[in-house]
Structure formats: C-alpha cells, structure tokens
Amino acid sequence: MPQRIIQNRRTFLKTLAGTAMGLAGTSAIGAPLVKNPALERKLTLNNLHTGEKLTAVYWAGGDYQLEALKEIDHVLRDHRSGTSIEMDRQLFDLLYMLQRDIGLHKEFQIISGYRSPETNAKLRQQSSGVAKKSYHMLGKALDIRVPGVPLRDLQHKALSLKSGGVGYYAKSNFIHVDVGPVRRWG
C-alpha cells in the first residue's frame, strides 16, 4: 500500500509540473517564453539593406498575429530578388527569447533573412562561408546584430537557448541564428 501512495504522489507531481509548464508558456522550440502566455511578444526589426524598420506585436491573446507575421515576412524578404516566404515562426520566438535574455527592447538589425535559391547560389560564388543548403532558403535563419550589445554576448545568449545553429562572424559583425539542429561555428 505505501508503494502505491508513492506512485500516485509521483504521478500527481509530474502532472502538476506539466500543468505549470503549460501555464508558463513555451515557444514552438520548447524553451520557456514567459510566465504569462497571454503576454504580448513584440519585435523591432531593421533591415539594413532596404532601410525598412518595423515594430510589431507578433503574438497576443495567446496566438500568433497573422497581419503582423505577414509584415515581418515582408521585411525579412530577399532584398535582391524581392521575394518573400512565410518565415518559420520559431525564429521569431528565438528572437523574442534573445531579446528577453539581453534585458533590452532594442532593434534587431537584419543583415540577411530569407534568401532565394538564386541569391544563395550567387552568394556561394562570392564566399565560401555560404552553405549550399542554407537555412536562409527555408525561412529558418537570420543574420543579426543588436546595437549596443557586444557580438560575443549576443552569441553566448543565443548558444544558451540551445534552439538551433549559431554562427559567429566577427569580421562581418553579425551572428547567424537558425532553428535547425543545435550546433555552433565561428
């Protein structure tokens, strides 16, 4: 009989912990976002190639905001070809968590968002650092920096999230983040 009580207590505690995690809110990548899932998630993006700036609440009332997502997708388009795709929403949650961990609401400067296969092929001809099967072509990667935040600090925060790939490009002054497998380089 005491054994059964312990098992029931363990089951109860696991259920309680699972419920608490659900109430805490998690991102699509499984990392805790905020204690209140109804809390708005806002990003400020500055596409350095187009000069476009956007501040958008992409999550409110417990759900993604479709109009804001379309605007973000447009700002993150391939500036060379003008094409855009639906970016992976996990990427926005990753940026939001980075912003939260930095402790600031600053803009993310976008060096590269979506890349069409044609753009990616052209960039590969110019640089050996461009992957043939880049996550940029899938809408799952961004090259970013944050004004006033040292690049190494941004890299360490991104690595601590364990949410995908993180590349460090000191000479070009940006980090790469993606929502692919967890890995690092640079």
Rank of each mutant, 00 (worst) to 15 (best):
I111S: 11
S134C: 03
R89T: 09
I110S: 08
M87P: 00
Q109V: 10
Q125M: 14
H136T: 00
E86W: 03
V130N: 00
I111C: 06
R124Q: 15
Q99I: 09
Q126K: 14
G113H: 14
Q125S: 15
D88I: 06
T119A: 10
Y114F: 11
H136M: 01
M87S: 00
G103Q: 07
S128D: 14
E107P: 11
F108T: 08
L91K: 03
V130S: 00
R100L: 15
E86V: 03
D88S: 13
S112M: 14
Q126H: 09
M87V: 00
L123Q: 06
E118V: 14
L91A: 05
S112R: 12
I102L: 12
K133F: 03
I102Y: 11
L95W: 08
K122E: 12
L98R: 13
G103D: 09
M137E: 06
Q90R: 11
E107I: 10
L123C: 10
R115G: 04
E118I: 10
G103R: 05
H105G: 04
F92A: 02
Q99M: 05
D93E: 15
Q90T: 13
K132H: 01
S128V: 12
M87H: 05
Y96T: 04
S116P: 04
Q90H: 02
Y96M: 12
S112W: 12
V130C: 03
S127A: 11
S112A: 15
L94H: 12
L94Q: 05
Y96L: 11
Y135N: 01
L95S: 12
L123E: 07
R100H: 15
R115N: 11
A131C: 00
K132F: 02
I85W: 01
I111V: 10
D101R: 12
D101S: 08
I85Q: 01
G113I: 02
S134T: 09
D93F: 13
T119Q: 14
D101N: 13
I102Q: 05
R89I: 04
S116V: 08
Q125W: 06
Q126F: 10
G129H: 03
G113P: 12
R115E: 04
D93K: 02
R115W: 11
S112H: 11
Q109D: 08
S128Q: 12
S128M: 03
I102E: 11
Q125G: 14
R115L: 09
